[in-house]
Design a protein around this nucleic acid. Structure first.
Lengths: 139, 139
DNA sequence: AAAAACATGCAACTTAAGTGCATTATTTCT
DNA sequence: AGAAATAATGCACTTAAGTTGCATGTTTTT
């Protein structure tokens, strides 16, 4: 049984062909992808199925959705896809205005922020916009 | 000449009737509003006009757009609408999962974050999700 | 093997966002 | 002031992402 198959099973996801392929697809890139990106990578499958697949992954805690300000949802594998650690992904994301790519800066955690009285924090989303390392190189 | 008229003129925006009304509308609430919210507040005017009006405000630095993760753009007046201070609005936003309202926490600035080599930061967006003060009161 | 549960594909719908163009209002110029 | 230029508004239409319903196909369970 392949590695991916195991990962899916650990997350209580049936390892169908498309799901295996999508996991592979996601694990091969280090940037967050849109549904369109995924669609372009799969001639064989259909928009709806891919949509539902990524949503399944999300529900089961395999991927997280990122809102980078472009208005289009992006997805990336959770850091510890295999582990049991379901703690929130409080790392931050960087969106490059040039290449339009969004990167998970998994080593950069969001610092603690004290809120006014009465506010209860459950989740956080920090996106930094600017120029990424690749684009700032090739001037 | 009214106060609002002056504010608009300072931002090089022609003070038409709709624009004056929209500014008033925005200044009357302390939460970020969607285009739909605005539309509901104006029987007289039309979606497109309101859309273009808010976009004009945005371009001229009167309002900022907030992406709170709901997928729907929200807008709020900049802190110093009147002043010359065009420095980025690096305050954070709080999105309440219960009442769905998004609040500018203008007093809470986003802390400095050091990025990996090659990354250039131009703008930041931090949204904290949870329960707001009003909703946590009335259990 | 039959029943139940789940996955997939197709079509259609919803909603926010955005554009083109004609009309109307406002400003500028002489 | 009046004409020309510029900008604002309103209406219709388009686009694109996201989402749902339902029929069909597949896998799992008993």
């Amino acid at each position: 049984m392949g590695d991916i198959e195991l990962v899916l099973k650990e997350h209580h996801i049936r390892p169908t062909a498309i799901r295996l392929l999508m996991y592979k697809f996601l694990s091969e890139r280090d940037i967050a992808v849109t549904l369109n990106d995924i669609e372009s990578g799969f001639d064989k499958s259909e928009r709806t199925t891919l949509y539902r697949t990524i949503k399944t992954f999300e529900k089961k805690g395999l991927v997280h959705q990122i809102d980078d300000g472009t208005g289009i949802a992006k997805y990336a594998l959770d850091e510890k896809g295999t582990g049991e650690n379901q703690s929130q992904d409080l790392h931050l994301h960087f969106h490059c205005e040039k290449c339009n790519e969004t990167i998970c800066l998994t080593d950069h955690k969001i610092p603690h922020i004290s809120l006014p009285k009465g506010f209860v924090s459950k989740d956080m989303n920090l996106v930094i916009k600017g120029i990424c390392d690749k684009c700032s190189e090739k001037k």
